[in-house]
C-alpha cells in the first residue's frame, strides 16, 4: 500500500507516494532524478549510495523510503550553495581525490559528517570512519589528503566567521 511522505529535499519541501518496499535510494533516483547516489553492492557495504537523513549519513539502498516523512534529506546535489562548492568538494577537487568519480558523492557526504563530529581527525581516524566507503580506483591516499585539507578549510571558515 502506498504512503505519502513529506520531507525536505536539498532545502525544498517535497512530497512523494512511496511503496513499502521502496528504498530511499530508488525514490531519489527514480522520482527526483538525483543520480549522484548509486546502487552498487545493495548491502550497505560500499558507501556509493550514501545519503544524509536529518544530519546522519545512511546507506540509501537499505533505508526505507516510508521512514523519511518529516526528515531533511541531503544528497550530493544539494551540497553546492550560492556561494559555491562546499569546502569538502573544493578539497576533493584540489587533491584530485578520484579517478572515475563513481564513489565520490558518497565519500564527500561521509567526509562532511566526519568533520562535523571531529573537526581535526588523525589519519587513523579518517581511515576508520571512511572504511565503509570503497574506491575501486584506489584513490585512498588522495582522499585522505582531501579530507585533511577540508578539515583546514572548514576550520578557517569557522575562524573567519568568529572573527
Amino acid at each position: 500500500m502506498k504512503k505519502q511522505v513529506n520531507f525536505i529535499l536539498n532545502g525544498k519541501s517535497v512530497s512523494a507516494e512511496v511503496a513499502p518496499h521502496e528504498t530511499l535510494l530508488d525514490l531519489l533516483r527514480n522520482d527526483f532524478g538525483l543520480g549522484g547516489a548509486k546502487e552498487t553492492c545493495g548491502l550497505g557495504l560500499c558507501g556509493v549510495c550514501t545519503i544524509i537523513v536529518s544530519g546522519v549519513p545512511v546507506s540509501g539502498c537499505l533505508h526505507f523510503a516510508s521512514s523519511i516523512d518529516g526528515e531533511e534529506i541531503l544528497t550530493i546535489e544539494g551540497m553546492e550553495t550560492e556561494e559555491g562548492l562546499h569546502p569538502v568538494q573544493e578539497a576533493f577537487l584540489n587533491n584530485k581525490a578520484f579517478q572515475c568519480g563513481y564513489c565520490t558523492p558518497g565519500m564527500i557526504l561521509m567526509a562532511k559528517k566526519l568533520l562535523e563530529e571531529n573537526a581535526n581527525p588523525s589519519v587513523e581516524e579518517i581511515k576508520d570512519y571512511m572504511a565503509g566507503n570503497i574506491c575501486r580506483c584506489a584513490s585512498y591516499g588522495q582522499i585522505i589528503e582531501a579530507i585533511n585539507e577540508a578539515s583546514k578549510l572548514l576550520q578557517q571558515e569557522k575562524a573567519g566567521l568568529n572573527a
Binding site: 550497505g44 558507501g47 550514501t50 549519513p57 545512511v58 546507506s59 561521509m110 559528517k113 565503509g132 566507503n133
Partner: peptide
C-alpha cells in the same frame, strides 16, 4: 562496535 559494519549502519 568500532569494527561492526560501518558508521552508516551503526548510526541507524
Amino acid at each position: 562496535l568500532t569494527h561492526v559494519a560501518n558508521p552508516r549502519i551503526r548510526y541507524v
